[in-house]
Nucleic acid binder design. Structure first.
Length: 594
RNA sequence: GCACCCGUAGCUCAAUUGGAUAGAGCACCAGACUACGAAUCUGGGGGCUAGGGGUUCGAGUCCCUUCGGGUGCGCCA
């Protein structure tokens, strides 16, 4: 399938090589063929003369003129002109645009697929919420961004593994086990006040939410009172591991359900505990030790206000400063167990060992301070293999309801779970809205705007455009017969009949889709897909209304079957492109609005 | 105090990764239904891209700096 931008870019490169032989590759790589900012400039523009002027030792306008003369020989191009400081504006033959439609119809949902990432394996880790409670709205953004990015990169040809890291080792899950045990005691009729129990549990009672009540009941059903003989808090040695594993399993099952409700699917779940037990962490640290990157040392105290209990202490450190980090980072806690970072090194080493060319982690913004040390570790482990770690930080989501912020507080009981959110606005609205923002910008999520059925609500606006397309095609199927308006049949329509400005504008938008997919995938920016769909929907709604002003522009022309079929081909292309984009976002296209 | 992210129309956000005169929606004003779905569309006003300096053919984008918001800062994950 052809990307017209890529095709034209090749023509530009040919012309450039002809005019200026022996240009270095890095100059050629900077040559772009892009949609023009102002449609009056044509269908495409290239910066070729600007980037090549210096190495060619020519003034940009002069080089542009030479390129214009060469490009005028290309049959695909109807107009070629230099402009401004040395841009070259290009206008395609109408036939080139019209020829796009059968291709789109044949490609169907695969329109925009590319081979940009072919042969490159991506390990994409996202969500990785701690199994200590239900998912809330804070986890949601990362889940949606990660999932859409996985779809996007697959569409661009990458071989993507979707992964979830279960933080089931360490103090947090011990505390979870104690909290579940408290609920278990209640379930078997032993009532201990929060305060009394908190005094007995190491670290106190950290998880007081009632989501653990069913877990306690299940424990009671499975074990009776055997975990608390004599009706008292038993020695944890006899129950802690069991209760912990049981509870983690229960929480993960809830999380998987929540993810399924959001339409997020991951095929690999890695347990931190199992990874640790397998020796993967030790092996990774051995590798770093062999490279001389591990040492015993004393860190400088942090600047500014010191933690109360700070004292100078020698510890095991990773030399992350060799790879751009600010300070070296500790691998062992004072009790001898691993820091989270040490285990994460093991985990990333494991990802590398399983075979990946690109690692991507999607994290919450509160982990921003952690990025450079993890990238340092991956650089150290990857050595010459050039595997990189990209980290996407998802910023805070402020939830608004009726114009006022919804505070995220467990204590105040205004804790918005992912399930609440989906129940309130629906899966598609959650996903689309989250994807209308760059991940690294804070966003406001207005619960009322997201369910509004107006242009203000992009998910509605795009769905409506698709529904309108389908509505026309349904109507045409009635009058012309379904077999004549299938995508396959419409692919042989005479699209040269489509010559009006708004029709050609839609084709230009459709033409940009493959290039947009590639760019978004390379930049790891799924939100561009959402914006493209919003703009395509706008083009289509405008075209539709042109038909209201001028009956000659309506899709269905009873006296002109050939013209009708040509227009239906365009409509079917719009619907197909919308489906193709919504598939990336993980949003369902709808046949009609209800 | 230090590091990272961010700052664009009154509001919510884009800007093809350094490209031409910074664009959409909401809100405001004025219009289009005898109609393939008006839940839509057309037109209008609205900007020193937080401030200042630098890099070059060219900066919202890169560098320095000031201000403002967010996040984090050895034994939480």
């Amino acid at each position: 399938m052809s990307d017209l931008f890529a095709t034209v870019r090749n023509h530009v490169l040919d012309a450039l090589r002809a005019v200026v032989p022996d240009l270095p590759d890095e100059i050629l790589a900077r040559v772009e063929v892009t949609p023009p900012r102002d449609p009056a400039h044509g269908d495409m523009a290239t910066n070729a003369a600007l980037v090549a002027a210096k190495p060619a030792k020519m003034a940009p306008p002069k080089l542009a003129e030479a390129l214009v003369n060469a490009l005028r020989q290309v049959p695909l191009l109807a107009e070629v002109a230099s402009a401004g400081p040395g841009f070259i504006n290009l206008r395609l033959q109408q036939s080139a645009l019209q020829a796009l439609l059968p291709e789109i119809l044949h490609a169907g949902i695969h329109y925009g697929d590319s081979q940009t990432g072919a042969g490159r394996r991506v390990n994409l880790e996202y969500v990785s919420a701690n199994p200590t409670g239900p998912m809330h709205i804070g986890h949601c953004r990362g889940a949606v961004v990660g999932d859409a990015l996985a779809n996007l990169m697959q569409k661009a040809g990458f071989d993507v593994t979707r992964e979830y890291y279960i933080n089931d080792a360490g103090n947090q899950v011990q505390a979870l086990a104690w909290a579940a045990y408290w609920r278990y005691l209640q379930a078997i009729g032993i009532s201990i006040s929060e305060e009394d129990f908190a005094a007995q549990a190491p670290g106190g009672l950290q998880y007081r939410g009632d989501y653990l009540v069913p877990v306690g009941e299940k424990l009671a059903a499975a074990y009776g009172d055997r975990l608390a003989p004599g009706g008292v808090v038993a020695d944890p040695a006899g129950w802690l591991d069991l209760v912990r594993d049981f509870t983690i399993e229960a929480m993960m099952s809830e999380i998987r359900e929540d993810l399924a409700g959001l339409g997020v699917r991951q095929e690999v779940f890695v347990s931190e505990r199992k990874m640790l037990e397998s020796g993967a962490v030790d092996r990774a640290i051995d590798i770093l030790t062999a490279k001389g990157l591990i040492y015993q040392g004393i860190l400088e105290p942090p600047k500014g206000k010191l933690p109360d209990d700070w004292e100078a202490r020698e510890q095991t450190l990773f030399r992350s400063t060799n790879f751009g980090d600010d300070v070296d980072r500790p691998l062992r806690k004072s009790d001898g167990t691993n820091t989270y970072f040490a285990n994460d090194i093991g985990y990333h080493a494991d990802k590398l060992a399983r075979g990946a060319d690109i690692l991507i982690d999607v994290w919450g913004a509160d982990h921003g301070g952690y990025v450079s040390r993890m990238q340092s570790a991956v650089k150290a482990l990857a050595g010459d293999s050039n595997v990189t770690l990209d980290v996407l930080l998802c910023q805070i989501v402020h939830v608004m309801r009726e114009g006022v912020p919804v505070r995220m507080s467990k204590r105040a009981g205004t804790y918005v779970t992912l399930r609440d959110l989906i129940d309130w606005v629906g899966r598609d609205a959650v996903r689309f809205t989250m994807l209308m923002r760059k991940p690294d910008a804070q966003m406001e999520f207005d619960l009322d705007a997201v369910v509004a059925q107006t242009r203000e609500n992009p998910v509605f606006y795009v769905q409506y455009a698709h529904a309108r397309c389908r509505s026309v095609l349904r109507g045409a199927a009635q009058s012309l017969g379904a077999d004549r308006v299938s995508d396959h049949a419409l692919a042989s329509a005479d699209t040269s009949l489509l010559q009006s400005a708004p029709e050609l504008d839609v084709m230009r938008r459709l033409m940009a889709w493959p290039r947009l997919v590639e760019g978004a995938a390379l930049a790891r920016e799924p939100h561009r897909i959402a914006f493209f769909l919003y703009e395509l929907a706008g083009d289509f709604h405008m075209l539709w209304n042109r038909g209201k002003d001028d009956a000659a522009l309506r899709f269905l022309q009873p006296e002109d079957t050939k013209g009708t079929l040509a227009r239906l081909a365009l409509v079917a292309c719009v619907a197909g492109a919308i489906r193709s984009g919504l598939a990336v976002l993980g949003v369902e296209p709808v046949e009609e609005m209800r």
